[in-house]
Design a binder for these strands. Structure first.
Lengths: 170, 170
DNA sequence: GGGGGCATGTAAATCGTTACATGATTTT
DNA sequence: AAAATCATGTAACGATTTACATGCCCCC
């Protein structure tokens, strides 16, 4: 049920169309909650039906601009404060680790080494984002920086772990 | 498609029924790849249809014991070595962070503080597992220890991040 | 007038969760 | 004899991904 709240959250920055939101997702939330075009339009319809957002304007090419209303903002706040976040459950990189005895030790080490490299690469990706948002002061960027820092620490931990784990396999 | 490979991986330890596998999932993989009973029985049927596992014995109460065959083991190895792991995409704890401007700063700080507590609690859960597996020498435990260490480092990172982030909000 | 971007929508397939349904066997 | 455990399966619903389908508007 989080896509719904991601949409509500983005609409706090102002009214937007499905098309606008799709770009916003790609630009800001894609690292913690990606959304496809398909999903987005469906969710906007449902949110409007549920009375949490309102069509605030219609433009050319059937453009529908949606705005957050009071009910929507209340629901967003409720979700933030009262719904316990679900911890990420699935990690197929770690799932493979459980089964590394099924490949040669050298291949296992190589697998782990690759995970360090992937961590490094993703870290660079995040550093690119950090440069791009610079010191923007909008709400999404301000708090997004906290999420970004989480990602950077996470990738660093992944690299350190991979170095440690590669040693363990010897 | 990873449930399929989780099943293949568990069957490397020996033949097992759906019922056995469900317990194995709960005991070993539930932290990286949980599975429900429903899903498991369905996947076993599909794997048997696909010729990656074989019914190796039938027991009382309609018990069907499945065994990994050569095709299944080959597929498992292929998946480990050749399929790039997908990084975890969704994290609703971080999604909420993006929207913390919508609640009082004091509530935002409290939210972050809660995440440190959740990290601590999950860390204790993992330490419990570490004690329970002790120095077991089966493949799943040996490599599972690497995954466990990942989890412990991850929870530590989460706690450190939360302390840092709480400061940032001031 | 053509190309690129704007804009929305639907359909099909797969995966995952929850709940329902059933019944046999073993243990106390 | 009852309770616990073993054991499998189906149905309904919701989320996600990928692909398909359509067409308008603006700039060059």
């Amino acid at each position: 049920m989080s896509l719904r709240h991601a949409v509500l959250g983005l609409l706090t920055e102002g009214p937007a169309s499905g098309y606008d939101l799709l770009k916003l997702f790609d630009a800001s939330l894609s690292n913690v909650w990606p959304a496809t075009q398909s999903q987005l339009y469906g969710e906007l319809s449902k949110l409007a039906d549920a009375g949490l957002i309102t069509v605030s304007a219609e433009g050319p090419r059937g453009r529908k601009e949606y705005a957050l209303n009071d009910e929507g903002l209340a629901e967003l706040r409720r979700w933030i404060l009262e719904v316990e976040p679900a911890r990420p459950l699935r990690n197929d990189m770690l799932l493979r680790v459980f089964f590394l005895a099924q490949v040669d030790p050298e291949q296992a080490r190589s697998y782990i080494r690759d995970q360090a490299a992937i961590g490094r690469k993703y870290q660079e990706h995040l550093e690119g984002i950090r440069e791009r948002i610079g010191s923007d002061t909008d709400n999404l960027s301000t708090y997004g920086r906290l999420a970004l820092e989480w990602g950077l620490r996470f990738t660093r931990t992944q690299q350190e772990w991979a170095e440690w784990a590669e040693e363990q396999i010897r």
